[in-house]
Nucleic acid binder design. Structure first.
Length: 520
RNA sequence: GGCCCGGUCGUCUAGUGGUUAGGAUGCUGCCCUUUCAAGGCGGAGGUCGCGGGUUCAAGUCCCGUCCGGGCUACCA
């Protein structure tokens, strides 16, 4: 039987990294087995419905490079793929009738006040809370008819069999069992006629021929209800795969406190999809053989449900950063520049860098940083348009020094502006030495006299200056020059950087450096 | 409270009765070098949550225990 899996988010908000991991596994598993990957929207809760959510899912998944074979956006043999539409099509009404007819579901007319009261009583008596029958599980047809006649609202519940052992065979955790007497009767159809998750998801999984249900481990406690439901229908359940969750640094559920949770925020911060996928896949799964840096193809061919781990994993941003830097270094420079240009054209990245930043994420200081970063990124993209080969040289020189696409703006900034921002500490440290004025003059003279401005030419210039002035190390020559030209004490090789900058910019910068120390 | 899941260096992990418990990240030292990176080579970091058992032999099997997490809605 060929593999059919589904990602079934409920459209209540953003697509976060925890959910991404589940879809990633779906996708990797389906693609590696020549299977089918399905997107289904579980919009059965009208109160929490968010109309922008589905577009967010589709957009995010497209960015990350996870595609589907069937779904609301592309159709398919089991359409519709939105549960609200499936409800309108009468699918759930048809299926629930089967259960009502065979006696495994019943109508319950309890009011929410009555249910609250029941739970309160159960808590006081330290009993398990839940609906274990009430007066409606075994009500006579006459009682039900009366209540319906009075026009009372009702829900339809599943009649969980009593005195049985319900067994879950989970692919990751093995056999898990429950005494059916501790499982309460779940609502299948709400009073408004909408199905609950329990009902809609399982009915759809069966109807759509889903072979493996991949979902978060928070679903384990409701698995017995789902198994009982399949039994009530007489259907064979799919294989359950309860994936471990991703948690924050403190072992608690991932939240804003731990950094970005929205997948698109990682896109906006300049991480490339492949790095994110590589990183996320490695939480809870490993290919063995100590392999970690994997291409898309390797991920797909190596991925296997058998190697999933049961324990929750923490989200380690530093490892993502390493993977990201690694991916950037592996890219041919032409391609890398294109990615940077695309990144600057990416609407959400711009919005992210220009948006208000909440206090817990760093407040106005962080916001200023982001805006500055974005400004320098736009400068780079603009330059690339006018003079691609210049931008390419800048990117090449910074390639091994950055971890995300977003880092290129700041890294390349000194190449792009008229006058770089000077680090006052660097100025103080390196401009005071006695040979510096003479050094600056030598550089200006070299540039103005049209001498060799290749990498080797600049190297020779500075090395000659060193020997002529009997300075025992190259550092005292390189550092002041670097500060004068870039404003910083770190960056690409000086000779390479001078070569890219060219004589005109060098002369201008040396002049302003001189005026900074009162020499002009 | 009840039910369920989990527990190997800080973190991600390899490991399915016999290994000096391996790799990666992070930290750190050295090399390279004009700086910062990158790269190369090292180092520290683990009483495999704890206690019992089974066994010649236990991270691996069994029991107990502790800690962490989840669920306990007409949310998903």
């Amino acid at each position: 039987m060929s593999v059919r899996v589904r990602f079934a988010p409920s459209p209540t908000g953003l697509l976060h990294v925890g959910a991404l991991r589940t879809v990633l596994f779906d996708y990797l598993f389906a693609r590696g087995r020549g299977g089918v990957n399905i997107l289904r929207i579980e919009d059965t809760d009208r109160t929490r419905y968010n109309p922008d959510s589905e577009a967010e899912f589709v957009e995010t998944l497209r960015w990350v490079g996870i595609d589907f074979d069937e779904g609301p956006h592309i159709g398919g043999p089991h359409a519709p793929y939105r549960q609200s539409e499936r409800k309108e099509a009468g699918i759930y009404a048809r299926e629930i009738q089967k259960l009502l007819d065979n006696g495994s579901a019943y109508k319950a007319f309890d009011t929410s006040e009555e249910l609250d009261e029941m739970r309160e009583l159960q808590q006081i008596n330290k009993m398990a809370t839940g609906y274990f029958g009430g007066k409606w599980r075994d009500a006579t047809p006459a009682e039900v008819a009366d209540a319906e006649g009075e026009g009372k609202a009702y829900v339809i519940r599943l009649k969980i069999p009593r005195d049985k052992t319900i067994v879950l065979h989970d692919l990751i955790r093995g056999r898990v069992e429950w005494d059916s007497n501790v499982i309460d009767d779940p609502v299948l159809i709400k009073a408004d006629g909408m199905p609950t998750y329990h009902f809609a998801a399982m009915v759809d999984d069966h109807l759509m021929g889903i072979t493996h249900i991949l979902r978060g481990e928070e679903w384990i406690p409701s698995a017995p209800k789902h198994i009982a439901l399949f039994e009530a229908f007489g259907w064979t359940p799919p294989i359950f795969v309860h994936c471990p969750v991703i948690v924050g640094k403190d072992g608690k559920k991932l939240s804003k406190r731990h950094g970005a949770t929205r997948v698109l925020d990682y896109a906006a911060q300049g991480f490339m999809p492949q790095s994110l996928k590589n990183f996320i896949a490695l939480i809870g799964w490993s290919p063995g053989e100590d392999r970690e840096v994997l291409t898309e193809e390797e991920l797909i061919s190596l991925f296997d449900l058998d190697r999933l781990q049961p324990s929750p994993g923490r989200f380690d941003l530093e490892k993502l950063q390493w993977l990201s830097g690694h991916a950037i270094r592996a890219l041919p420079t032409e391609e890398l520049l294109d990615k940077v240009i695309d990144f600057v054209a990416f609407d959400y990245a711009r919005e992210f860098h220009q948006a208000e930043v909440s206090e817990e994420e760093g407040g106005s200081a962080e916001m200023e940083k982001r805006m500055a970063r974005w400004a320098s990124l736009e400068l780079l993209a603009a330059r690339a348009k006018m003079d691609r080969s210049f931008a390419l040289q800048c990117v090449t020189l910074e390639q091994e020094r950055v971890t995300t696409l977003a880092d290129f703006g700041e890294a390349c900034e000194f190449f792009l502006v008229d006058q770089p921002r000077m680090d006052p500490k660097a100025v103080e440290k390196w401009f005071g030495q006695p040979h510096v004025p003479k050094l600056f003059d030598a550089i200006v003279a070299h540039c103005e006299s049209g001498q060799d401005c290749s990498v080797a030419g600049f190297e020779q210039l500075l090395r000659t200056f060193q020997t002529e002035n009997e300075i025992d190390k190259l550092g005292p020559i390189v550092h002041p020059t670097r500060v004068a030209l870039t404003g910083k004490t770190f960056g690409p090789g000086l000779f390479e950087l001078m070569n890219v900058l060219g004589p005109a910019r060098i002369v201008a910068r040396i002049h302003s450096a001189k005026s900074l120390i009162g020499l002009n």
